[in-house]
């Protein structure tokens, strides 16, 4: 079975010549990956990043932007490696949401 990320030769439409200046949050995702994958930290490898992106379901893969896939994969890897726990993450996400509502971000 072909995995959905393995798309070489598949039918597709015209290539739209799109590009955009990366948003600060996208650059931060990139920076996190660079830092976490350096020799000193070694909390994610390129092939782990790829594996976790490939694990995103086909529908979500199509809908998500490039850096949305990356932060999803980085997060999954930190959980897999035990660097963060699901409970810590869910509490922190709730906290971020609260601060956003209160205008504190």
């Amino acid at each position: 079975m072909r995995q959905h990320h393995d798309m070489g030769g598949e039918p597709a439409g015209r290539v739209e010549k799109t590009e955009h200046d990366y948003a600060p949050w996208e650059k931060r995702v990139d920076a996190l990956l660079v830092l976490l994958s350096d020799r000193e930290r070694s909390l994610i490898r390129t092939d782990e990043l790829r594996k976790n992106i490939e694990a995103i379901g086909p529908d979500a893969y199509e809908k998500m932007s490039y850096y949305e896939r990356w932060i999803t994969s980085v997060t999954a890897n930190l959980l897999q490696r035990g660097a963060i726990t699901a409970e810590e993450l869910s509490r922190k996400l709730a906290d971020v949401e609260r601060r956003e509502k209160e205008g504190l971000l």
Partner: peptide
Amino acid sequence: PLTYHQRLEIAVRELL
């Protein structure tokens, strides 16, 4: 409003 993935980036970065 932030998107889910933008909030996720903030949360992960703050935890790290």
